[in-house]
Simulated assay, not measured.
Amino acid sequence: MTTMRTEKEAPPVKPCECCDDGEGYCVFPYYGVAPHTHAVSDPGNPLGWIGSTRLLPKEQWPENFREDPDCPGLGVYLRCPECGAGEAPAEEHR
């Protein structure tokens, strides 16, 4: 996913290898499916079919995920779990 940016706009935090979009910007925050796992047809076969998606219990969701109140099971991943780049934590918004 490529985001339109102006020439003068600089990334606030240098993203790490985990969250760099390929152009030096962080991919966070982004909207997606809540933390989940997939059932696979044959766990021993890396080319097996990916089956159903199963959301993890909310108690296992990381602090960097905020669920969409209008669409349960979806939400925003706020920051990179590796380097913290992305949206500032709530206490920094004050």
Rank of each mutant, 00 (worst) to 15 (best):
T2Q: 11
T2I: 09
T3G: 14
T3N: 10
T3I: 15
M4H: 14
T6N: 04
K8A: 14
E9G: 02
E9A: 09
P11I: 13
P12R: 14
P12V: 08
V13F: 08
K14P: 02
P15T: 07
C16I: 10
C16D: 11
E17R: 11
C19K: 00
C19A: 05
D20E: 12
D20S: 12
D20H: 03
D21K: 12
D21S: 04
G22K: 03
G22N: 05
G24F: 05
Y25L: 11
Y25G: 13
Y25F: 15
C26A: 08
C26P: 01
C26Q: 14
V27C: 03
F28P: 00
P29N: 00
Y30S: 03
Y30A: 00
Y30R: 07
Y31L: 07
Y31Q: 04
G32L: 01
G32K: 00
A34R: 00
P35M: 01
P35L: 00
P35K: 00
P35W: 01
H36N: 05
T37N: 03
T37W: 03
H38V: 01
V40S: 01
S41T: 04
S41G: 10
P43N: 11
G44T: 05
G44Y: 09
G44L: 15
N45P: 10
P46L: 06
L47G: 11
L47R: 13
G48A: 15
W49K: 12
W49N: 09
W49P: 10
G51R: 13
G51T: 03
S52T: 05
L55A: 01
L55T: 03
L56Y: 06
L56T: 04
L56A: 05
P57W: 12
P57D: 07
K58T: 15
E59A: 05
W61V: 02
W61F: 13
W61H: 04
P62M: 04
E63N: 15
E63D: 09
N64M: 06
N64K: 06
F65M: 00
E67W: 09
E67H: 08
E67Y: 13
E67K: 04
D68C: 07
D68H: 09
P69T: 09
P69K: 06
D70V: 08
C71N: 15
P72R: 08
G73F: 01
G73R: 09
L74E: 13
G75S: 09
V76C: 12
L78M: 11
L78W: 03
R79N: 14
R79V: 04
R79I: 08
C80R: 04
P81T: 01
E82R: 10
E82N: 15
E82F: 15
C83R: 11
G84R: 05
A85H: 06
A85C: 13
A85L: 11
G86F: 05
E87F: 03
E87G: 06
A88N: 07
P89V: 02
E91W: 14
E91H: 09
E91G: 02
E91T: 08
E92T: 07
E92S: 03
E92K: 13
H93A: 13
R94S: 12
R94K: 13
